[in-house]
Amino acid sequence: MSGAGTSARGAAALDGGAVQRTAAEVAIELPAVTLTRPFGPEHDVYKVAGKVFCMATEATGQPIVTLKCDPEHSLALRQQFPSITPGYHVNKRHWVSVAAGPGITPDLVEELVLEAYALVVEGMPRHARPAVPDAVSRVPRRARAQGAEPPER
């Protein structure tokens, strides 16, 4: 993956294609996930048990990944990272779009994909939920809103 600089965490920032590849690699490995293209071949849509949690496409000429996100965490992310914006063509309160930019690292993209997946799974009736691995556990909402890091995986 080609980098676009170095973030405060010391990891190389990703270019747009690498943001999408990282999200895709993480998403497709999760339990009960399917990749669909209901909007055409240029729109990858990842679903868990039929519910969307991640989408990859191009917006205004740049590759982005759009992810389900807790509203408080969404606000904190948008304040911290200029290339994380309200979700493209979705509910702006519950989704974020991630493009290449300062601080957008593989670890951050992985964390956001896992959070999106967990949010969707948590919203399902218990009988419909796939078995979720421990690695998908999330930081409590209050801690996330205050900018806390996720637990070590």
Rank of each mutant, 00 (worst) to 15 (best):
M1E: 08
T6D: 14
G10K: 00
G10N: 03
A11Y: 12
A13Y: 02
A13R: 04
G16I: 06
V19N: 03
R21D: 15
V26H: 00
I28Y: 05
E29L: 12
L30Y: 04
L30K: 03
A32Y: 08
V33C: 04
V33E: 03
T34E: 14
L35W: 09
R37D: 10
P38W: 01
F39R: 10
P41C: 10
E42G: 14
D44M: 14
D44P: 12
V45N: 05
A49S: 15
A56T: 10
E58K: 12
E58S: 14
A59K: 14
G61W: 11
G61C: 14
Q62E: 15
I64F: 00
V65Y: 04
C69N: 11
P71T: 05
Q80K: 14
P82F: 07
P82C: 00
I84G: 01
I84S: 03
G87H: 02
Y88M: 04
N91Q: 03
K92R: 11
R93H: 09
V96Q: 04
V96M: 08
V96Y: 04
V98H: 05
A99N: 07
P102W: 00
T105R: 01
T105K: 01
P106C: 02
P106R: 08
L108K: 02
L108Y: 00
V109C: 06
E111L: 08
E111A: 11
L112H: 02
L112C: 07
L114E: 02
L114D: 01
A116N: 05
L119T: 10
L119D: 09
V120H: 09
V121L: 01
E122G: 13
A128P: 02
A128W: 12
A131D: 12
V132Q: 00
V136I: 14
R138M: 13
V139R: 13
R142I: 08
A145H: 01
G147H: 11
G147W: 08
G147D: 07
P150I: 05
